[in-house]
C-alpha cells in the first residue's frame, strides 16, 4: 500500500455506531416498551480499493448497518464518516457530492428495478439526479459504456427489466451503481436471490470491477464462502455487534472467536469425502432476539466455551489498530 493511502483518511469509517428501533405496544396510544438493538456499537473502517466482507446470520443487523453506512438512515448514536466528512452534518449540493462517492447494490434484482423504465433509463437515472456528473450530450454514450462494463449488450438498452434474467437484472443494478463513478460499492446479499449457476457470473463481475476500477467494496452476505472468495478483510457479526475482524487469511485459517469457528463448522463443504463427522461440535439453539440480547457476552447462550465471567461482563468493543481483534474474554488460540 502506498504511503499516501496509509495516511489519507479511510474512505468509510463507523465509530460506536448504534441503531435501535423502538418496540411499541398498544394500537391507538403507542407505548414504547423496549428497543430492537439491530446495530449496537459497531466500529469499522474501509480503506481505499479494499474489499471488506460482513458476514452473519439472518437478523444480526447487516442491512441496518448498510443503511447507516450509506447515510440512508440516521444512527441512534455514533458516527459515520465518508472520506473524512460526516454526511449528517451536510445538506444540499455538498451532501449530494458526498453521496456520489458511495453507492449501493440491492439484494433483490426482481423488486429493486422500476418495471416501467428501460434498461437505459435505469442505468442513466443517476445522471438526472446529479446533472453535473456527465454532460447531457455524453450520457447516451456513457450508458452504453456502463452496460458493456457489466457484460450487457448495449443494444438491449430499450428493453424492460422483465425481459432480462435475474443475473442480468443484477448486472443492471450494478451498472446503475457505477454510473457516478463511486469510490465505494456496497453490495447487500448481491447473489443470494440468484440461481446457483448464475451467482458465479455476478461474483466474477464484482471481482473484476473492483480490480479494474480500484473500487472499494463492502460485501454483505450470510454466506461465508462468498465473503471469503471476494474479500481482503472480513468482519463477523452476531446480534448487532462485530465479534471478530481480520484479514481473510486470519479469519479463515485461525478464527479466534467461538462464533466464527462455529460458522465454519456449520457451513457445508461441497465434497462428500470431507463430510464432518456426526459427533463434531455444533452450536445449539437459535439466535436470541435482538430486542432482548443476553447479558455479558451476547454469544454466551450458545457458546460451548462460556464461563461465569461471560454471563456478567460485556465483551469489549472492537477497536481498530490491533491486528486481529476479537470480542471474546477467552479467544481461541489455533484451529483444533
Amino acid at each position: 500500500m502506498s504511503p499516501s493511502a496509509e495516511t489519507a483518511p479511510p474512505l468509510l469509517r463507523a465509530t460506536a455506531l448504534t441503531r435501535h428501533f423502538p418496540v411499541t405496544e398498544g394500537v391507538l396510544l403507542k407505548r414504547r416498551t423496549g428497543a430492537v438493538r439491530a446495530v449496537d456499537g459497531i466500529d469499522l473502517t474501509v480503506r481505499r480499493a479494499e474489499t471488506l466482507g460482513i458476514v452473519g446470520e439472518s437478523g444480526c443487523g447487516k442491512s441496518t448497518l448498510a443503511s447507516l453506512l450509506m447515510a440512508l438512515d440516521r444512527p441512534t448514536s455514533g458516527t459515520v464518516t465518508i472520506d473524512g466528512q460526516n454526511p449528517f452534518a451536510l445538506s444540499g449540493p455538498e451532501l449530494r457530492a458526498l453521496r456520489r462517492r458511495v453507492q449501493m447494490v440491492l439484494q433483490d434484482p426482481y423488486t429493486s428495478l422500476d418495471p416501467r423504465m428501460t434498461a437505459g433509463q435505469i442505468v442513466g437515472e443517476p445522471f438526472a439526479i446529479h446533472p453535473g456528473a456527465v454532460p447531457r450530450a455524453d450520457r447516451g454514450r456513457r450508458v452504453a459504456e456502463l452496460l458493456e462494463t457489466v457484460g450487457l449488450d448495449p443494444t438491449h438498452r430499450d428493453r424492460y427489466p422483465h425481459q432480462f434474467s435475474g443475473g442480468q437484472r443484477q448486472r443492471l443494478g450494478i451498472a446503475r451503481a457505477l454510473a457516478l463513478e463511486p469510490r465505494l460499492l456496497l453490495c447487500d446479499e448481491p447473489v443470494s436471490a440468484l440461481d446457483v449457476s448464475v451467482q458465479a457470473q455476478v461474483l466474477n463481475l464484482l471481482d473484476d470491477l473492483r480490480r479494474e476500477l480500484r473500487l472499494a467494496c463492502v460485501l454483505i452476505s450470510h454466506d461465508l464462502a462468498v465473503v471469503q472468495h471476494l474479500c481482503d478483510r472480513i468482519a463477523v457479526m452476531y446480534l448487532g455487534k462485530i465479534v471478530e475482524t481480520g484479514t481473510r487469511e486470519q479469519i479463515c485459517a485461525t478464527p479466534r472467536h467461538p462464533y466464527t469457528r462455529a460458522l465454519f463448522a456449520a457451513a457445508p463443504v461441497p465434497d462428500p469425502r470431507r463430510r464432518a463427522p456426526d459427533d463434531a461440535l455444533l452450536l445449539e439453539g437459535d439466535l436470541p432476539s435482538p430486542a432482548a440480547p443476553p447479558s455479558g457476552c451476547r454469544f454466551r447462550t450458545r457458546c460451548p466455551y462460556a464461563r461465569p465471567q461471560c454471563l456478567t461482563e460485556p465483551t469489549l468493543r472492537l477497536r481498530d489498530g490491533t491486528d486481529h481483534p476479537t470480542a471474546c474474554h477467552f479467544p481461541l488460540e489455533s484451529t483444533g
Binding site: 446457483v196 449457476s197 451467482q199 458465479a200 461474483l203 454466506d223 461465508l224 464462502a225 462468498v226 471469503q228 472468495h229 481473510r248 487469511e249 479463515c252 465454519f264 457451513a267 463443504v269 461441497p270 465434497d271 470431507r274
Partner: peptide
Amino acid sequence: SVPRLDRL
C-alpha cells in the same frame, strides 16, 4: 462455479 471454503 460455487465458491468453496476449502479452496481459498
